[in-house]
């Protein structure tokens, strides 16, 4: 008995630990799948929205729940819910677009630097460091100001300042991988530089890049909303979350829902992005 009891207890403990680990895994999968849910909702925004976001649909400045407007109506009688849904759609796709561009630029630069080494690596990484040493959102404002305000220019500007993170991460992974035996073997087998880089190095850097990217979406939604708030986005009638808050600030004290609801739209998107990002990280890099 004296011996059997601890053994039994240990067995019990491992099964319960396995159970919680399974539960954690399921929670992570659920969280990560939120990415798909939000993307689907963004695609379906035209179907989900009760009204046209650009056209008046009733009396102006009705409170939430009044006149058939779930989140109220704005100063010219447009449905706030529809505007928020369309705004979330724009924000989400904008964030995904910047992530994709950032991964592409950063991935290529990180791959070239990591796989080539030597002075190329040095030069590319010094440039990356210089970008990382500057405050990205402020630099983005200057880029948009030079190109002229528009959503496309904002996306280009933010991508230009966003890639250095990814370049650093991909390069670090590639340098680690380059010392592994399978790369040595590929070299001995006579594989060319390009083949080694693309077939033997790049795939190994994908998980780390994916984790970074998914943890980044929430930040990006917030940054883009801030730039939109400052007027660096689509022009007036278009539904955009940051800009809708900024333009309606004067209604805050009487008709709070008009400026507040778009802000809550940003909060919801960023929150979901952060939770889903955590989920992806836990799935790819379980500690």
């Amino acid at each position: 008995m004296a011996i059997a009891e601890p053994v039994a207890r240990r067995a019990l403990r491992t099964t319960s630990r396995r159970k919680t680990r399974n539960l954690e895994r399921k929670a992570s999968v659920a969280a990560a799948s939120l990415f798909g849910v939000v993307t689907l909702a963004a695609l379906l925004a035209p179907v989900l929205s009760p009204d046209n976001p650009l056209m008046p649909a009733g009396a102006p400045l009705l409170g939430p729940g009044k006149g058939g407007f779930l989140l109220g109506s704005d100063s010219i009688g447009r449905d706030v819910l529809s505007r928020v849904l369309y705004g979330m759609r724009t924000s989400w796709f904008a964030a995904l677009g910047v992530i994709a561009l950032g991964l592409l630029i950063g991935g290529v630069i990180g791959l070239v630097a990591g796989a080539t080494g030597g002075w190329v690596d040095n030069v590319l990484m010094r440039i990356t460091d210089a970008f990382l040493a500057l405050p990205a959102p402020v630099l983005a404002i200057a880029v948009v100001a030079a190109l002229g305000p528009s959503l496309l220019h904002t996306l280009v500007a933010v991508s230009i300042v966003w890639w250095p993170f990814y370049a650093r991460i991909v390069r670090g992974e590639i340098r680690n991988l380059a010392a592994r035996p399978h790369v040595e073997a590929a070299k001995l087998a006579g594989a060319g530089r390009l083949r080694i880089a693309v077939r033997h190095l790049l795939p190994g850097a994908v998980p780390a890049a994916l984790v970074t990217a998914s943890l980044d979406i929430g930040n990006l939604v917030l940054t883009l909303a801030g730039l939109s708030f400052l007027g660096l986005g689509q022009s007036a009638p278009a539904a955009e979350l940051g800009a809708d808050t900024a333009r309606n600030l004067s209604f805050l004290l009487q008709d709070w829902w008009v400026p507040v609801m778009p802000g809550i739209g940003v909060l919801v998107l960023a929150f979901i992005g952060n939770i889903a990002g955590d989920g992806v990280r836990n799935l790819i890099e379980p500690d």
Partner: peptide
């Protein structure tokens, strides 16, 4: 904290105005 990290600065500002000023 997670919620706080997901809140845009301007929403914090206007929520503060509604609560502590208005």
């Amino acid at each position: 904290l997670l919620l706080g990290a997901s809140t845009p600065t301007f929403l914090l500002g206007i929520a503060g105005i509604l609560l502590f000023y208005s």
